[in-house]
């Protein structure tokens, strides 16, 4: 059986309850939109394989519950991520203010190399907007992050934002990746057996850092 992907990494969706994390994800992986979504309790999972610069990238996306109370639990997952979406809702000033809290938690708990982008969702609800695009831009700049306004409803900037974060993670791990690709070619027969942590184990044997 041919290996379905060359590299694998985890992306995490963070942000207040109701900003549309699950909807963004459903649009990205299944191209579906359900306005009355069921609440996420704990963490949910999706995956998708993208091709970036000829590399098959499988991304696992961890979709977390947004309520503050759950952060004790979800913080445990930060350190397993290579990329993080910080999501707010452009119709909710409060969800935007909370981005600072989310970002500082990420600094504290996620790996140093973690890549982040800022996402202002629900861009289709212009008449209810409370957060100007300029505010989002400014905050993203202050954190040195890329910024996207998205709409899961109209499918605006969804693929773009996911692909961008995937590219950033790929770039950040370029050095490891080159070594990894060599090792994949070397152990082509092993590759079929590798799954999930398997990739991690085989690369960490040869390397100082494990990035998946």
């Amino acid at each position: 059986m041919a290996k379905q992907y060359d590299v694998l990494f985890r992306l995490l969706l963070l942000g207040d309850s109701g900003v549309g994390k699950t909807c963004l994800l459903c649009r990205f992986t299944d191209n579906e939109f359900h306005p009355s979504h069921i609440s996420t309790i704990g963490v949910d999972f999706k995956m998708k394989t993208l091709e970036i610069d000829g590399i098959k990238v499988r991304i696992q996306i961890w979709d977390t519950a947004g309520q503050e109370r759950y952060q004790t639990i979800t913080k445990q997952y930060y350190r397993r991520a290579q990329g993080i979406f910080l999501v707010y809702d452009i119709t909710s000033e409060r969800s935007f203010q909370h981005i600072m809290k989310w970002a500082s938690d990420v600094d504290e708990y996620a790996p140093d190399k973690v890549q982040k982008i800022l996402v202002g969702n629900k861009s289709d609800e212009e008449q209810k907007r409370q957060v100007a695009t300029a505010q989002g831009n400014k905050l993203a700049k202050a954190y040195g992050m890329d910024f996207f306004e998205t709409s899961a409803f109209t499918n605006h900037n969804i693929t773009e934002s996911f692909t961008r974060l995937a590219e950033l993670v790929l770039q950040a791990n370029k050095k490891d990746l080159d070594v990894l690709r060599v090792s994949i070619n070397d152990k082509l027969n092993l590759a079929a057996l590798e799954e999930e942590e398997g990739v991690c184990d085989s690369s960490s044997d040869a390397q100082k850092t494990c990035w998946c």
Binding site: I41, G42, V43, I73, Q76, E195, E196, E197
Partner: peptide, 17 residues
């Protein structure tokens, strides 16, 4: 265990609801 699939990943949702 070998896949690092810890019980919290599925039990949290099951127990909470």
């Amino acid at each position: 265990k070998s896949n690092n699939l810890t019980p919290d990943i599925y039990l949290i949702d099951w127990i909470f609801t």
